[in-house]
């Protein structure tokens, strides 16, 4: 019987990791090194990991609050979410009028997003991981110097209410990930690692490079602008903020999924 149980455990573990990696919900991203726009001038290493193909949807988050009452909007503690948390929901368990189950969930705080991922055995991506995957277009892992790639992102920034669209609406990138640009902004685990130069009165080693560098702008203008918007947004966030165009997706370490 013992052997049987052990066998069953093994199979269960295998099925579980299959469920994670084959349900179409996650794809593997091969790590590497890249120089992010902001915060460092040297290459940062990114390890291999799995990333959700789509942002977490309203329907998925609905299930989450059903089984985790403390994240329902009437019960969430103010330390963990501001008054805008799930603002457009009709009540604790139902979406508001006109909200689609298949749209990305928004108006969620960092704490809620983090706990959601933990409950799936996953975690939020780091800023570096997110940026690493998001620099891909359909064909290339790093499309940051492509004019069309940047134009797409910038025209999205100018389009209102894209959070109302449904997931899968934008392009499938090099890694097989959808909607990193085009629907919603996304939480990252270390969003509060962004030190924006304008806040230098608070920062010990304020990073003013971005603004100094602005004097010497060249061909990479657009790319820097698009990425700067994201970093500036992160730098302005607090973890309890719940914003209408900010959602999230989860990632998972490769070793963990393979056990």
């Amino acid at each position: 019987m013992k052997t049987l149980i052990r066998l069953a455990v093994c199979i269960a573990v295998m099925i579980q990791s299959q469920a994670y990696s084959q349900s179409g919900s996650m794809v593997e991203v091969k790590g590497g090194e890249f120089i992010p726009l902001y915060g460092t001038k040297t290459e940062v290493p990114v390890g291999d990991f799995l990333m959700d193909v789509y942002p977490v949807t309203n329907a998925e988050f609905q299930q989450f609050v059903e089984s985790n009452p403390r994240w329902r909007k009437s019960q969430v503690k103010k330390l963990f979410a501001d008054d805008n948390y799930l603002r457009n929901w009709k009540d604790d368990l139902s979406l508001g009028e006109g909200m689609l189950p298949n749209s990305p969930v928004t108006n969620v705080s960092w704490y809620a997003a983090k706990n959601y991922c933990e409950c799936q055995g996953k975690r939020l991506p780091t800023v570096d991981e997110w940026e690493y995957v998001a620099m891909a277009n359909e064909k290339q892992p790093d499309a940051r110097t492509e004019k069309t790639y940047n134009q797409f992102i910038l025209s999205w920034y100018e389009t209102p209410d894209t959070y109302k669209k449904t997931i899968g609406n934008t392009f499938k990138n090099y890694w097989g990930v959808y909607d990193l640009h085009g629907l919603v902004w996304e939480w990252t685990s270390d969003f509060n690692s962004v030190m924006i130069g304008g806040e230098s009165r608070k920062d010990s080693t304020g990073d003013n490079n971005l603004f100094c560098g602005a004097a010497a702008v060249g061909a990479t203008d657009l790319m820097n602008y698009a990425a700067f918007m994201r970093y500036a947004f992160r730098g302005s966030m607090k973890a309890q903020y719940s914003v209408k165009n900010l959602g999230f997706r989860c990632v998972q370490d490769v070793e963990k999924s393979e056990l």
């Binding site: 962004v194 806040e199 607090k238």
Partner: peptide, 21 residues
């Protein structure tokens, strides 16, 4: 750190930039 609204980032093997709050 999120609760204190403190930002920090490792900028080299031995150094961090961080808010002074």
């Amino acid at each position: 750190a999120t609760v204190l609204a403190v930002s920090y980032k490792k900028i080299s093997p031995i150094d961090f930039s961080h808010s002074n709050i």
